[in-house]
Simulated scan of single mutants.
Amino acid sequence: MEIRELEIFLAVVDAGSFQSAAERSFCSQSTVSETVRSLERSLGVELFDRGHRPARLTGPGEILAGDARRMITLAAELRDRVRADSDVITGSVRVGTYSSATTNFLAELLPRFRADHPLVEVKLVEMGGTDLPVAAENGQLDCFLRQTTPPLPEARFRAHPLWREPFQAVVTPGHPLAARPGPVRRAELAGAALIVTGRFLPGGLLAHPFWSSMGTTNIAYEVSHPHSLVALVRAGLGVGVSTLLGLRTAGTDGLHVTVVDDPIAVRDVALFVPCLTPPSRQAKIFIDYAAGFPVPPGCTVLGAGAPSH
């Protein structure tokens, strides 16, 4: 019985299906199925009732699930204690992230971190903001970068504030907003056809105070990525509104970009660590390193006491 087998077994338990467990474990469904079969062969029992959907544990499966999480935690604690007396820090850190944070922050941080800690491997996992906390609590991530809205429960996640970036509007050179200097005002956005990134779901776009105050009546297009937003702006379909780093990642050459003049038109980003399982020694090294690393150009340092958006 191996720790990785237990992790995949618990992924099936938590996800309710082998396919969903494969997505959470970042491997194929056949790998998940074969791993569970291998675990069943080694134990001599069936762990799941495969005729039931969603996946349902058998009696022996219930017993194993009850102790598997504790076994994984104990193994991690034992590994850390064994390494504690050594000055050499080794191992891997699984970091959840999203595209603009990877491009504008981690791409600068990782080479320096590798130079300072060459034996610590950093594994990046990019996913959506709603998926990151779930992956962390399932043991798939040691920490993750995420905007602070919607807020995460303080009892479950510890936040290390990193940076604040402004919202920006992007238009074609011939658009009326490009004809004058200075920031764009809220009233001007309220009267324009907007192109945005985000989801109109609880905990999505409208969880941010700026968008909840603006509403969605004049949103013409909702897309998932700033590249798509910029493409629609280039097509003359409206005013794009996104964050500084998102637009920087997408590329806005030839377009007019200006900051949104509103004190709540900002996005705060933090590094989150799940509270349920203490971070490993190498994860602590990475967390401290990231928390003290320079923020991306154009952003401001977000102090621990600053209000978040």
Rank of each mutant, 00 (worst) to 15 (best):
M71F: 09
T172H: 05
F167Y: 15
T90S: 00
P151H: 06
P166A: 03
P176E: 05
R180P: 00
G96M: 05
V82R: 13
D80C: 06
A75D: 08
D85T: 14
L124G: 09
R81D: 05
G139M: 03
V125W: 01
R185A: 13
Q147V: 14
L145I: 07
F113R: 15
A187P: 02
F167P: 02
S92G: 06
H160P: 02
Y98L: 12
S86F: 07
G91M: 02
R164V: 08
F105K: 01
T73L: 15
L78D: 14
H160Y: 13
E121P: 01
L110F: 03
L119K: 10
A84L: 06
A76L: 01
V125P: 00
A107F: 03
G129E: 15
M127S: 09
D131P: 03
T73P: 07
T172F: 04
E165H: 02
R158F: 10
A84R: 12
P153T: 11
T73D: 14
R164D: 01
E77S: 09
R186F: 05
H160M: 01
A187N: 03
A178H: 04
P151L: 10
P133T: 10
P111E: 12
P153M: 06
T90Q: 00
A178P: 04
P153G: 04
L177H: 05
Q168S: 04
P166T: 03
L106D: 12
T103P: 01
G174K: 01
R83V: 11
L152Q: 12
G129T: 14
C143S: 11
A169L: 07
I89Y: 13
D87C: 02
D131L: 13
